[in-house]
Design a protein around this nucleic acid. Sequence first.
DNA 1: GTTAGCACTCGCTGATCGAGACTGCCAACC
DNA 2: GGTTGGCAGTCTCGATCAGCGAGTGCTAAC
Lengths: 346, 346
Amino acid sequence: MMEPTQLDERKQQILKAVVADYTVTGVPVGSQVLAAKYFIALSSATIRNELADLVGTGYLQQPHTSAGRVPTDRGYRYFVDFLMEPESASPTVRRTVKQAFESAPRSVDGILEKAAMVLAQITENVSLVTAPEVTEARIKHVDLVSLEPQSVLLILVLEGNLIKQQVVRLDRATSQEDLSRMAAMLNRKVKGQTADELSARLSQLGPDRDEQRQIIERLVESITTHQAMRQSVVLHDGVRNLLRHPEFVEVSRLEELLELLEQGAQLASILQQVAFDKDVEIIIGRENTSSGLRECSLVLTTYKMDERVRGTIGVIGPTRMHYGQVVARVRLVSQATSELLRPSGN
Amino acid sequence: MMEPTQLDERKQQILKAVVADYTVTGVPVGSQVLAAKYFIALSSATIRNELADLVGTGYLQQPHTSAGRVPTDRGYRYFVDFLMEPESASPTVRRTVKQAFESAPRSVDGILEKAAMVLAQITENVSLVTAPEVTEARIKHVDLVSLEPQSVLLILVLEGNLIKQQVVRLDRATSQEDLSRMAAMLNRKVKGQTADELSARLSQLGPDRDEQRQIIERLVESITTHQAMRQSVVLHDGVRNLLRHPEFVEVSRLEELLELLEQGAQLASILQQVAFDKDVEIIIGRENTSSGLRECSLVLTTYKMDERVRGTIGVIGPTRMHYGQVVARVRLVSQATSELLRPSGN
DNA sequence: GTTAGCACTCGCTGATCGAGACTGCCAACC
DNA sequence: GGTTGGCAGTCTCGATCAGCGAGTGCTAAC
């Protein structure tokens, strides 16, 4: 296998230059171009020697003999880990984001939709946004609406004005009057608790009449198990952007990717694994477990609604992307989203 | 211009054969194939003469000299209007649809999502589903949740368990207790009315204390104007299916289409124009006002939740599609969806 | 009106060729 | 030893061209 070589200074600079040039041109970069554009002090022959070494150690590859060099996944990895310079979003981009969010509705869904939209726009890639995970969100309000005698619509309003709804079937017919009474009772007991806390304190809900007790247990059970239902929701936007990238001229690659996006479940599991402590996580090419992402990179981070509610936001694009810029912009949108979702704010 | 020729019997049969063959093979169909596969009694020379006529009258075209014939938009139009034989969905397809809906959640959104999914799957095209228009839906339940002192979450439960939510800003701080009281009051007065009726009877809402009166007016106003907000929501699914069609190998066509799908607004206005009295509406190629749909056909129909709530459902695909089959399947899913959405049912 | 025959057109395929872009290597140089 | 100029070799890409096959339009005969 390839040992984890530490590259000397000049090799680093050359790798960096190859990545920089390749990301903008999309064309394999040769020794002459490098000498002319980035290393006027060196001859192309010298650079050729270095390039050969970098190919040997697995940081670069050449599509065929007598072609320029292209970064490998390993090369990109080295670049983002050690060579990438921190960028910050331009004023123009900041303005775009700000304006987009200004026209967003105040609901969580609306904000996330706008976030996906603007992120796709400014990164020119596909954006991904997971719905917040609500395991630990505090409950603000509960409402019960009778749909049919034995079926109830349970409406939960959580912190951050996140609304969850679910139809619950009951064992016996229950009138709206009874439901309203139960809702009022639940609201007194439930307010400010998380679903987990609620579940733990189920026994303290007071010895009501037995039939109500049963119904309430059923409802609480629905509340606590609720989060599993919507977990796999992943918003995305900007598929049209991919078509502009030359790596997707053959539609077969696009097809795998679209399948992934449209079914969502597999994607959701990838996004859930994003660490919350890290700033921005980058997954490059074959580092992805999913084969459909073999030639794609993910740039992901998390957003917060408050300390307890979090989601993932990021983009997916070809491995050949302007990582520094994308990282800056993903971070920008993540921050702006968190800001808007702050329950105390606005 | 081309006069609306009435085709004689044989020309009709030939046009029909060309459409049928081209739809499945995707290759321009020549006189020999037609003679061999569809008209054993006729020679290819005879058919050539007829084909030449059909080209002259604008029903067929040839991509270049010495190529077979391909239907024009006009040819397809004649086909669907006069030649297409009614098909019905196969048992396999029916089973697929049934199974898909069985696993659907009971909410309107969930059902529509599943409808989009299964329609895309069985037609191998992109499916479109508009959210129901609720102008005339009866209100079942109203709830008010205090978010901040001066901002209220208004939750409307409509017939068919359709839930609408909206944040309303108030002129003065109002406690949750007051809101709950108002909600209870509204529920008594509002239940079973449509938004329009409610608006008309605003004055009859009883002379409450003035400050509450003001707030309630504000809320009712929000209810009645609400429908405009979500009007442009168009679900779609199955973009991946398009990639399998040879007409989308060049991505430029796909790009226009994706733009249309992802922004949605223009699409929504097209779908809204679908007549409710007609069974299934078919729009072919350049009949579309939108240039992005120049080479696509739409097969659309409506679904109902009850007499007052309706939406549009259908597919979009290349003009070369198996119209008879697609019509049957769109109709099937529309019926199944309406069935599931019936408020009295399930 | 139908048909067989035939000359003609045109796109597709595959082969060939030259240009251009790089490389790898070698020998000379600092 | 690292660096450099020079040069032969390799490979892709695009253009060109011929041959093939599919299919047509036309004409003359039935």
